[in-house]
C-alpha cells in the first residue's frame, strides 16, 4: 500500500515513535531488575511490563478473575457435548495428567491437514469428529473456558513449540508476517514489540507481545480473550484489515510469536491491562 494516506500516517508514526524512544530513556536508566522465572535470556513475559496492582491480580488464584473460566472449563471437561454422548473426559479422564504440557507445545503441525493447528482447532477437531458436536468459536465462553483450563494445567511449564521439520515453512510464513509492515500506519509487529518494548505507547507500556499467558484476562476486555483476538486488535490499531480468527495467517503468526517466547512459563490465565 503506497497511497498518500498511508505515507502521511507513517510520517506521523515515525515522528511519534521518535518521541517514544526519548521517553523510553527514562525507563532505561532504571537498574535492571531480576524478574525471576518471568525472564528467559533477553525475553520477558508481559507480566514484567504490568503495574504491581495488575500483577497482584494475577498472583493469587482467588483474586484472578480468569480462574472463573478455568473452573468452568473443569466442569465442561466432563460435560457431554455432542451426538456421540461423549465428553472430553471420556477419552482424557485424568486431565491433570493427560493435558500436562499440551498448551505450551501448540500450535502443532498436523500431517493430515498439511498445516499448523492451534489448540482451539485441536479441541474443535475432537468436538466435531469424536464427540459429534459443533465447533466452538475461539472467543466463546465454552472455548475460553476449555482453553484456560487446559492452559492452567501446564502452569509454569516453559513454552516449547516445534518449529523445524514440517513446521518450518509455516514458521517462515509467520515470521514474514511479523516483519511485514501493514495498515495505514504502515507498521509491523516488530515496530512495537521488538523495537520498542518498555517504552510508552500513549499511556501504555509496550510489551514484547509474548503470548505465554493466553488466553489472558484483559482488564480492558473484562474477560479472557484468545491470541487471535489480540492479533486482530493489533492489526486494527495500525489501521490494517484484520484476518479472521483461525486463519492460516494468524495460525502461522501464533507459531512464530509463541516461539519468540520460548522458555517463558505458561501463565494462563494471565492478567494484562
Amino acid at each position: 500500500m503506497t497511497n498518500i494516506k498511508s505515507k502521511l500516517g507513517w510520517k506521523l508514526a515515525t515522528a511519534v515513535l521518535g518521541a517514544a524512544v526519548v521517553a523510553g530513556s527514562f525507563a532505561a536508566s532504571a537498574v535492571a531488575k531480576d524478574w525471576g522465572k518471568f525472564q528467559v535470556e533477553d525475553r520477558r513475559s508481559g507480566y514484567t511490563y504490568m503495574t504491581d496492582e495488575t500483577r497482584d491480580v494475577q498472583n493469587d488464584d482467588f483474586e484472578n478473575p480468569g480462574m472463573l473460566w478455568v473452573e468452568n472449563g473443569q466442569s465442561l471437561w466432563s460435560t457431554k457435548m455432542g451426538s456421540a454422548g461423549k465428553s472430553c473426559a471420556s477419552c482424557h479422564a485424568d486431565a491433570d495428567k493427560d493435558m500436562k504440557g499440551v498448551a505450551p507445545s501448540y500450535p502443532k503441525y498436523n500431517a493430515k491437514m498439511g498445516k499448523m493447528e492451534t489448540l482451539e482447532q485441536r479441541i474443535n477437531r475432537d468436538i466435531v469428529e469424536k464427540m459429534g458436536g459443533k465447533a466452538l468459536k475461539f472467543d466463546s465462553k465454552e472455548m475460553l473456558s476449555l482453553m484456560t483450563y487446559v492452559g492452567k494445567i501446564s502452569s509454569g511449564m516453559p513454552v516449547n513449540v516445534k518449529v523445524d521439520g514440517p513446521a518450518a515453512p509455516f514458521f517462515a510464513k509467520g515470521k514474514a508476517f511479523y516483519y511485514q509492515r501493514r495498515g495505514q500506519l504502515d507498521m509491523s509487529c516488530a515496530n512495537c514489540h521488538e523495537d520498542n518494548p518498555g517504552k510508552l505507547i500513549r499511556a501504555n507500556t509496550l510489551s514484547e507481545g509474548q503470548i505465554n499467558g493466553f488466553p489472558t484476562y484483559r482488564l480492558k476486555w473484562q474477560k479472557p480473550g484468545s491470541v487471535h483476538r489480540r492479533f486482530k486488535g493489533c492489526n486494527k490499531n495500525v489501521r490494517a484489515k484484520p484476518f479472521k480468527r483461525g486463519s492460516d495467517e494468524y495460525v502461522n503468526l501464533e507459531l512464530y510469536v509463541k516461539w519468540r517466547g520460548r522458555g517463558l512459563p505458561t501463565e494462563t490465565p494471565s492478567v494484562r491491562n
Binding site: 506521523l12 508514526a13 511519534v16 518521541a19 527514562f26 525507563a27 500506519l185 510508552l200 500513549r202 473484562q222
Partner: peptide, 28 residues
C-alpha cells in the same frame, strides 16, 4: 512508572486527545 504521555499509534485518537482530551473507556 512515569505518566508521560507519548502518542504513537493512533493517529485519529492523537488528534482528538491533543485537541480536547476526551476520555472514553469501554465501560462507559
Amino acid at each position: 512508572m512515569t505518566n508521560m504521555k507519548v502518542e504513537v499509534l493512533d493517529r485519529r485518537q492523537f488528534l482528538v486527545t491533543a485537541g480536547a482530551a476526551a476520555a472514553f473507556i469501554g465501560g462507559f
